[in-house]
């Protein structure tokens, strides 16, 4: 069938962009190919790995599973808009301080997922952090330092002294929400 283009306006990292796109264009391709924001990665393209995670109206979503037309009128934050070298976002700082990455391929998605998680739950337990990271796959780190990085960010965002050494392993598991 004829692919009719539609005009979409999306606010990305505080700047408004208007483009004519095919309805089937995925948000991740819109960001990477139309806007040149290649910080958002494509790992699996099957909604599993989370490398493509961005904030859509403040919520972490997998941008390979969202159409650009669905984001018309919405606000998107990508890794490029989260912070910059002189003002790192607390999650970015956490990754730096706690060595939350190795090759770095998954990192933009993991950081955006963590930023979305902390926005929804500023005070997560270690178990909640691990559950919150279920939708991201990192083939390098083993996740230990990622969890530490998120704990660092949560502390920092609380405004308390950031440098508490928190053990990423071995805390007791307390299942929330039991009947």
């Amino acid at each position: 069938m004829e692919a009719t283009r539609m005009t979409v306006t999306v606010r990305v990292n505080g700047r408004e962009y208007t483009r004519a796109v095919e309805p089937r264009l995925l948000l991740v391709h819109f960001l990477r190919d139309e806007l040149g924001l290649t910080g958002t990665h494509i790992g699996c393209d099957t909604s599993q790995c989370g490398a493509c995670t961005v904030l859509l109206n403040g919520e972490a979503v997998k941008s390979c599973t969202v159409l650009a037309v669905q984001a018309d009128g919405a606000e998107v934050t990508t890794i490029e808009g989260l912070g910059d070298l002189s003002h790192l976002h607390p999650v970015q700082e956490g990754f730096w301080e706690k060595h939350g990455l190795q090759c770095g391929f998954c990192t933009p998605g993991v950081i955006m997922t963590a930023a979305g998680m902390l926005a929804q739950n500023p005070n997560p337990t270690e178990e909640e952090i691990r559950e919150g990271l279920e939708g991201v796959i990192c083939r390098c780190t083993g996740y230990q330092n990622i969890v530490r990085a998120v704990q660092y960010a949560a502390e920092k965002m609380k405004g308390a002294g950031a440098e508490t050494e928190v053990a990423a392993a071995g805390a007791d598991a307390s299942a929330g929400g039991d009947a």
Binding site: S47, G50, A60, V61, G116, G132, L133, E134, G135, V136
Partner: peptide, 8 residues
């Protein structure tokens, strides 16, 4: 699913 899936 996961956090991102539950958001959508």
């Amino acid at each position: 699913g996961d956090l991102q899936v539950r958001n959508r």
